[in-house]
Nucleic acid binder design. Structure first.
Length: 416
RNA sequence: GCGGGCGUAGCUCAGCCCGGUGAGAGCACCAGGUUGUGGCCCUGGGGGUCGUGGGUUCAAAUCCCAUCGCCCGCCCCA
């Protein structure tokens, strides 16, 4: 046990894990580009106030999970608990909505929440997300969901389900919340302590409760659908139909309300049975009021985010590429090996050479362990003839190869 | 924030209940067996303040307390 450990809930990504991360990042980039989305990067630190405005002062994120601190100048700052608020802030701050009425954006980076760590839940975690600003129409909801589903598919993740719901317009929601407050108010004392609290703050979240004592009431509670106007209903139906038609495994979940306060209309979560308690690996929805609440123009928007660590848990493992294509081993003067490895690198090969002056046997063992297919052995006798030995580790065949022809031989051997 | 399980070598773990016999195994690592050749095998080697701190005791990996971390559930979400 070392004297210093990484901070609780914050993890190193070791070299052996990086190929998986890089593959994931490559898929993010490729699929985003295919959908015409542009990357945006924003700071890890924002004013704490930003999240009170966006995520909502009653959300769990703000109430108990946000890393907040005062900087040396006395400013109240926060490590971002999610990335949407920063993206919206950036767009408004730089007046991007005056330049274009539609923006398709994606982001990728770390976020921070002070929670009790668990599998798939860390204090520093990573999110990939995409946001579409400027369209109030269901087509944009669908585009965002299809983008997410394309990434999931490209990663080889098949065991998942997309849960969909709608929260309607703010007015419809307000009336519904009123109805819920009234309904649950009658049975207040029978509810779980937590739900009693939510009754004041955010009655919608009672629907999300898993306390057994709440279940009978939740089942009888008014449903939002009855409070929706035809426009809202039509919007949701179009989203459902299109997503279903695209072959995505969908399930409408009327209980899905999500923890962020800024959503309107469509909300969704990607869930997988393989994840245990944290079964959601992605989620999002429409947030038509957020841009305006940040002082920007009235611009409708939809977006979603993936939890990168959770995607990694779901991804099938990939075969690993060897770190090098050729290993230069030497018996004798090490400078010769240096010369040969430089020649190979100059020709564009990924080539490594022993740096510990170990025995030839140890060098070959190392090459084998690294999975390198070809070894160039710089031997005394061959060197005097101006050549080296090329050895294939797959079957042990080897031959002498004049130095000027080395690249050509290597190319030939590697292309097989 | 609440409940539970677990921390012994780089990794997976045994030993702990019933305190005392030099702190172990497998894998991994290094070297030799082949004085210029990997994988298999054989031999040898390095590596641990038994998570940390305190207490009980003649004696603690083993018993007690605290603390930190990991894991699982609740909660919440990505």
């Amino acid at each position: 046990m070392s004297q210093f450990q990484a901070v609780r809930g914050m993890h190193d990504v070791l070299p052996e894990q990086l190929p998986q991360w890089q593959r994931l990042e490559a898929v993010f980039r490729a699929v985003s580009a295919r959908f015409g989305y542009e990357e945006i990067r924003t700071p890890v630190v924002e004013y704490a106030q930003l999240y009170l405005r966006s995520v909502g002062p009653d959300s769990d994120i703000v109430r108990k999970e946000m890393y907040q601190f005062t900087d040396r100048g006395g400013e109240q700052l926060a490590l971002r608990p999610e990335l949407t608020a920063g993206v919206v802030r950036a767009l408004v701050q730089h007046g991007l909505f005056h330049r274009r009425s539609l923006w398709r954006l994606w982001y990728y980076g770390p976020a921070f929440r002070y929670e009790r760590p668990q599998k798939g839940r860390y204090r520093q975690f990573h999110q990939y997300g995409a946001e579409c600003f400027g369209s109030p129409y269901p087509e944009s909801d669908v585009e965002i969901i299809l983008l997410a589903a394309a990434i999931v598919q490209e990663l080889g993740i098949t065991a998942y389900e997309l849960q969909l719901n709608t929260l309607g317009t703010p007015e419809e929601r307000r009336r519904y919340q009123q109805a819920l407050r009234e309904f649950f108010g009658h049975v207040r004392s029978a509810l779980s302590a937590e739900s009693q609290q939510r009754l004041e703050r955010n009655p919608l979240r009672i629907l999300d409760s898993k306390h057994p004592e709440d279940q009978p009431f939740i089942e009888q509670a008014p449903v939002l659908w009855d409070y929706l106007g035809t426009a809202s209903r039509e919007h949701f139906e179009r989203v459902c139909d299109a997503v279903q038609a695209a072959g995505i495994p969908v399930r409408v979940n009327q209980r899905l309300v999500r923890g962020l306060d800024y959503y309107t209309h469509t909300v969704f979560e990607f869930v997988s049975p393989q994840l245990g308690a944290q079964n959601a690996f992605g989620g999002g929805g429409r947030y038509d009021m957020l841009v305006e609440s940040f002082g920007g123009p009235s611009v409708p928007a939809v977006g979603f985010a993936f939890g990168v660590e959770r995607l990694l848990l779901l991804m099938p493992p990939q075969p690993v590429e060897p770190v090098a294509q050729i290993y230069v081993a030497v018996a004798g003067e090490v400078e010769r090996a240096q010369q040969v490895v430089m020649q190979l690198r100059a020709a564009g090969y990924r080539a490594v050479v022993d740096l510990q002056r170990r025995s030839l046997k140890a060098q070959l063992r190392e090459a084998h362990r690294l999975g390198v297919p070809v070894v160039a052995i710089v031997g005394q006798a061959e060197w005097e003839r101006g050549s080296v030995v090329l050895r294939l580790l797959s079957d042990g065949t080897q031959w002498e190869c004049p130095l000027p022809e080395l690249s050509a031989h290597v190319r030939h051997v590697l292309s097989r």
